[in-house]
Design a binder for these strands. Structure first.
Length: 272
DNA sequence: ATGCCTTATTTCATAAGA
């Protein structure tokens, strides 16, 4: 069974490349992030034509996640219980019934696929450590931890994957000196990842395919990809039972090349 | 080395990304 995760940076802008990649890589399960469209406008028909069932969770211009599966898609969760909403300024998100509370952003979708509980996750960016977005990021991680802990008491086969927007170690950024004072590398963010691993989840580190670092993201600007100045922020966190099934894992950096790529590459994991 | 930002929208400018 082949499972993959890919931040596509707009599923509609990326549709030709997504369809091409699906036909070529043939994942059984694909977790998508930053679909940047609504659930209704997700190109489900095109994907279903390739044999996938689709669970999409998007609310417009930002964020949005989806799960594609050719091995079943059951018990779909759009978001998760207790998922926080961004409560800082500006007040962009729609209000829900309770005064002052906004609707959670579309950052998580879960489903049971081929005997595995799978989550496609898009963690908040955080912007700067001083920002309300950063506090929200840590709150979101704490809520995610609570939900995964509950599910792990029931499930042995579970994968939480996606764009975590945190580089687990200094080896996971092209130049740690460039990231001093930035998000993605702070002790609190790395602790949030460590707290997830402490639940019994293992970081399935992919093979880079080029160079020593399995980066998954390269900024569009300034030739960062050709220079291989990247970050490893797209992660696959798997239970011990799933990790024991891993036959191989790699970063498909070919998908980052050419015309109209996402700024992230897919992470592909093969399971027995 | 596979190229020197890209996306959707409140569109010809802006906010956000990480």
């Amino acid at each position: 069974m082949r499972l993959a995760t890919w931040n596509v940076n707009s599923v509609r802008a990326r549709l030709p490349r997504l369809l091409e990649w699906l036909a070529e890589a043939k994942p059984d399960i694909l977790a998508l992030q930053e679909i940047k469209t609504t659930t209704a406008l997700f190109p489900s028909a095109e994907v279903e034509e390739l044999g996938y069932e689709v669970a999409a969770h998007g609310d417009g211009r930002w964020n949005g996640v989806a799960l594609l599966s050719s091995v079943g898609l059951e018990h779909v969760s759009l978001g998760f219980p207790g998922e926080p909403s961004y409560e800082g300024e500006p007040a962009e998100a729609p209000l829900i019934d309770e005064p002052g509370l906004r609707k959670p952003e579309t950052r998580a979708v879960g489903a049971n696929c081929g005997g595995i509980r799978v989550w496609s996750l898009y963690a908040p960016n955080g912007r700067t450590p001083e920002s309300a977005h950063y506090a929200y990021k840590l709150t979101w991680y704490a809520a995610l931890r609570t939900v995964l802990e509950a599910e792990l008491s029931q499930e042995t086969q579970l994968v939480a994957c996606g764009d975590f927007n945190v580089a687990p170690t200094d080896d996971d950024v092209w130049d740690p000196a460039q990231f001093v004072g930035s998000t993605h590398v702070t002790p609190a963010e790395r602790q949030a990842l460590a707290d997830l691993r402490a639940l019994g989840l293992r970081d399935v580190v992919p093979t880079p395919m080029k160079g020593p670092h399995p980066y998954t993201y390269w900024d569009y600007r300034a030739g960062m990809f050709p220079a291989n100045k990247g970050m490893r922020i797209d992660l696959v966190y798997a239970t011990e039972a799933v990790a024991a099934r891993v036959e191989g894992a790699y970063v498909d950096r070919e998908a980052r090349k050419g015309k109209g790529p996402s700024d992230h590459a897919p992470v592909v994991v093969d399971l027995s």
